[in-house]
Each structure stands twice: as structure tokens, then as C-alpha cells.
């Protein structure tokens, strides 16, 4: 079984991010990390490839900024990494993005399963997964909290997913696209050997021409970025002689704020 997983680099979640005077988003020179949600999809990809005696490939779409995430993936244990880049188009538009991603999956050829993380921690669109499934014409299973069974021989996958109202068990036919949640596994840390392998890895880059695809026109556009208004909070530390006094005072304040 061949499993493909997608990942990208995102700014460290602790980084200060702001819009600079040119209107661009910046996080200074803080390093990027592999998208934290993808640690779970990378781990699941490695584990499922091993369980089924299959192989795995990790793909990033975009600039070389994403090599950090790809190298982290190799260091964790994904054997093959590649990047798709087409500077002529706006890959932030998801119609364009999915055309490139679907092109890569098709060029790889024998793919049975695509595993995504839940979302990109920075832009958090939570849309690329479904749209790739649609472009490929494959089944989509989202918010997976557990892979119960995947059997390449019979071509069936069975998972447990998390929805607002509770858990649900779903099954269907491969090939499929799934997205996985935090909690599905404990992502491993790269070991020394993995890190050394990643440092030496050459990452091939495919363009739209390599994929032999026609690119659609972008439907959306980021018009502008702005810093959100400063949130001015005046903190009142509730004072009082006893716990009861302070509790009563806080309750009064909350009633006055009309949130109760």
C-alpha cells in the first residue's frame, strides 16, 4: 500500500506574528516548524505504512520554506519527500492548490490513501483536504480519531471520527483521503539517524509542467492583512477578606457586565 501525506512549514506557535509597514505578514527571524497538526498525520502515515507492509511519500506544495517540514518528515521516518512549486500561480487559492496536489498524487500513480492533519495551524482554512478528495474523486473521511482497520487486499478502510455531537464509525472503499485529529497517536521525535538522513536528503521539485496539468484560475485572493485592534484589558483583581466575600463580589461584577 502506498500512503501519501501532505505537510508544510508554519511559524512556531509561540512566535510573535504581525503585519509590517508594507502590509506583509512577518514573524521576524523566528524559525518555522512542521505544521503541529501534521505531527499526527506523519506519525499515522509511518505507522500505517509499516502495518500494511507498504510505503509512504510526503509532499509539500509551495516555496522552499517548506523544506524544513519535509526534512522533519524524513527525520521522523518518511522515506520519500518531494515538493511541488509553481511560482507562476497563487497556490494560496485552493482551486489552484488542489490541482497541483491532485497532479502530484496522480503522477505518483499507485496511491491508495492520503492522510492529512486537521488543518494548517497558521491560516487554518481546513479546506484543502476535502477539495483534494473531490478533485481525485475519492472518498473523504474527516476528523478521524482512530483507524480501526485498513485492508489493502479487500480495499476497505474503517475509522472512528469525532463530530461535535460525539463519535461515529465510518467505513468505505479505498482509495480515500482522511484527515486525522490530535490524540490519534503519540507522534515520535526524530532520532539521530533520522536527522542525519534528513540533512543529506535531496528534495526533488515538480512544476505544473512535470505534472502535465492545466491550472485553473484562482477564485480567491488575499486582499490585505491587518493587525487586529489592540485589546485593552484593565484587570481588576478582586479583593476581599474571605473567599466568600471575593466570590460574592465577582458574581456582582459579572451580573453588572450582563454576561450572566
Amino acid at each position: 500500500m502506498h500512503i501519501v501525506t501532505f505537510t508544510r512549514s508554519t511559524p512556531d506557535t509561540a512566535a510573535k506574528v504581525w503585519v509590517d509597514d508594507n502590509g506583509d505578514v512577518t514573524w521576524g527571524d523566528v524559525a518555522t516548524v512542521v505544521n503541529p497538526w501534521d505531527e499526527y498525520s506523519l506519525e499515522e502515515t509511518i505507522a500505517q505504512a509499516k502495518n500494511t507492509g507498504g510505503t509512504a511519500t510526503v509532499v509539500a506544495i509551495g516555496s522552499e520554506l517548506n523544506n524544513d517540514a519535509l526534512k522533519h518528515s524524513i527525520a521522523m521516518g518518511i522515506p520519500i519527500a518531494l515538493r511541488v512549486d509553481e511560482p507562476a500561480v497563487d497556490i494560496n487559492d485552493s482551486l489552484v492548490w488542489t490541482a497541483l496536489a491532485a497532479g502530484a498524487v496522480k503522477k505518483l500513480g499507485d496511491v491508495d490513501l492520503v492522510i492529512f492533519g486537521k488543518e494548517s495551524v497558521d491560516v487554518a482554512t481546513d479546506q484543502h483536504t476535502y477539495q483534494l478528495a473531490r478533485r481525485l474523486g475519492w472518498m473523504m473521511l474527516s476528523y478521524v480519531s482512530k483507524i480501526i482497520d485498513v485492508d489493502p487486499a479487500s480495499g476497505v478502510i474503517k475509522v472512528e471520527r469525532m463530530l461535535e455531537q460525539g463519535k461515529q464509525v465510518l467505513s468505505g472503499k479505498l482509495p480515500a483521503v482522511i484527515s486525522v485529529m490530535k490524540g490519534i497517536n503519540e507522534p515520535r521525535y526524530p532520532n539521530f539517524l533520522g536527522i542525519r538522513k534528513a540533512a543529506k536528503a535531496q528534495i526533488p521539485v515538480w512544476t505544473a509542467q512535470d505534472l502535465a496539468i492545466d491550472l485553473p484560475a484562482a477564485a480567491t485572493r488575499a486582499v490585505a492583512y491587518r493587525n487586529p485592534p489592540e485589546r485593552e484589558v484593565k484587570t481588576e483583581i478582586i479583593a476581599g477578606d474571605t473567599e466568600e466575600d471575593r466570590a460574592r463580589l465577582l458574581v456582582e461584577r459579572l451580573f453588572a457586565e450582563k454576561v450572566l
Partner: peptide
């Protein structure tokens, strides 16, 4: 975007 640090 960016965990609410930026509006897009």
C-alpha cells in the same frame, strides 16, 4: 489567521 494574531 495566525491564531488571531493577524486579520486577513
Amino acid at each position: 489567521a495566525y491564531a488571531g494574531k493577524v486579520l486577513m
